[in-house]
Structure formats: C-alpha cells, structure tokens
C-alpha cells in the first residue's frame, strides 16, 4: 500500500473511532432508567400507603378491602416487572457499550500514527480486546466463514 493510501486509511480509522465513541456516549439512557426507578419507588410508596389505609380503617366493607388487597398485589407485580426490566436493560446497555469500546480501541490502534509503516492491526490483536465469550465465538465464526469463502 502506498504511503498516501495508508495515511488516508489511518485518517478514516481515526474519524470512525470518534464517530463510534460519540455513539457510545449517547447510549447512556439514564433518563429512561431514572424514570423506571422513580416509578418503581413511587409504586412502593403507594403500596405502603394502601396498606396503612387498610390498617387504619378496619370498618371498611369487605368489597373495598378486597379491592385494596388486589391493588397492593398488582402494584407489587408491576414493581417486580419494572425492576426486572431496568436490570436486564442496564446489562444489555453495558454489554453494547463494551462492544463499542472494543471497536473504538481497535480503530484507534489502526489509526495510530506511531504504528510503524507496513505493520497492521491483526485479527488476533482484535481478539485480545474482547470481554465476553459471545464476542470470541462470533470472531471465530466470521474467520471460518471468510476462510470458507476464500477457499
């Protein structure tokens, strides 16, 4: 590869690294999580309030009492589902950010002006950045597929 082409390629990698970093920083959907946690906390407070009302008005009709108990059960179930959703989504987001980090580091190294001319970032260098077995498995699948296509 000519020196000019290599310099252009490094420039493209540097720009792409910045673009992916920008995208990764936008992945922090903290407002959505904050809303989920606040809703869960509010439901917990409402549930406690209903339980207090139950205790303080023992003369309420059986129908009202049953409806209050049903509401408390329903609130508990919705809270459980909200907490589950927030936790699973937080982990998904974390995983996506880690994959983005891996792409950013790879692109930064490929764009590194200090990299001696003629040296290249190899697939094994990329594999060393992985943080999960899923990434390593996918890496192997792609290598096998590309080898199959080349054969």
């Amino acid at each position: 590869m000519s020196g000019m082409a290599e310099a252009n390629e490094k420039l493209v990698c540097a720009i792409l690294a910045e673009q992916v970093a920008h995208l990764r920083d936008k992945m922090d959907a903290s407002d959505a999580f904050d809303l989920l946690w606040r809703t869960s906390a509010l439901l917990s407070w409402l549930s406690g309030l209903l339980a207090d009302i139950n205790r303080q008005s023992p003369q309420a009709s059986p129908v009202v009492e049953r409806e209050r108990n049903e509401a408390i059960s329903e609130i508990a179930e919705i809270r459980r589902k909200l907490d589950h959703l927030a936790f699973v989504e937080a982990q998904r987001q974390d995983f996506a950010k880690q994959i983005a980090d891996c792409v950013i580091v790879a692109l930064e190294r490929m764009s590194d002006a200090q990299m001696p001319p003629g040296t290249h970032f190899a697939s094994a260098d990329l594999a060393a950045l992985y943080v999960s077995e899923d990434q390593r498995r996918l890496h192997e699948e792609v290598l096998q597929r590309l080898k199959g296509q080349a054969a």
């Binding site: 922090d28 903290s30 999580f33 869960s40 927030a86 936790f87 937080a90 982990q91 987001q93 974390d94």
Partner: peptide
Amino acid sequence: LDDSATMVMSLSHILKGA
C-alpha cells in the same frame, strides 16, 4: 464495583429494595 454508572444504579436499586 462496576465502571458502568447505569449498572451501579441498577444493582443498588435491587439490593436496597431487598
């Protein structure tokens, strides 16, 4: 301990709730 602020908040929420 986690470098993801979202994970830290999510874990804290679940543990405090328990």
